[in-house]
Amino acid sequence: MADQLLEINGLNKHFGGIFATENVNLSVERGTIHAVIGPNGAGKTTLIAQLSGQLKPDSGNIEFDGRSIINDSVATRARMGIARSFQITSVVMPMTLLENVMLAVQGGSGHSFGFWSPVHRDRAMETAAMSSLAEVGLEDRARRTAANVSHGEQRQLEVAMALAMKPRLLLLDEPMAGMGKEEGAMMIDILKRLRGDMTILLIEHDMDAVFSLADRLSVMVNGHVIATDTVENIRANKEVQKAYLGDGHA
């Protein structure tokens, strides 16, 4: 068995009578990009929410690096090395991009009960933040307010903040949501550069992105994982084609 960073076993979550997650088993190998695809309402974002700790599953287990994290809070999991980006942009809008990313660096570096020294004079933290911004190509936007940059740049900021936490596992919830073709291509480039260095669980609608990035692919439909395999095998899988890709595809 290969080295698994994340192991999900028999995960269940339902809202009333609707199963958002039903008996989901999934494992993510260290150093790979694992993509989860599926139609709207398949339960992908609900899955991310349970992994990051916003939602508590009804039953099942999540192991991160060999340890169950099912009872840990969002903040605890983040400090253990699970970073996420949000499907709907979630940054601190009135702050600059640099301040946003510095917050992420700060979150990953000890406690924040510092009451006296100004953060904007912390060169080490600023350097770390700038390098994360540079990784996503936002270094020349560092002093702009998050509310005053384009949607695509806000999406890049989401990724930069996740990267700045130096995570062991990166959960990306549709990083390309609402992006134009050009911006999308840029995001694919950014993620390609991370490949191999980082373990990523990627949720994405854009098939071009998924097929060019993912090492492995899971397909979710109605809260079930109906298949997990390599990209080639998933493309050839008839059941997947019918359920998701459409009859005319492949």
Binding site: Q54, V92, P94, Q106, S112, G114
Partner: peptide
């Protein structure tokens, strides 16, 4: 200071601040 950044950040986006640890 570090503390203030967390306080101000939480005012605008608590969910994000928790996700940052």
């Amino acid at each position: 200071a570090r503390f203030g950044r967390v306080i101000v950040g939480s005012r605008f986006n608590e969910q994000r601040m928790q996700a940052l640890g």
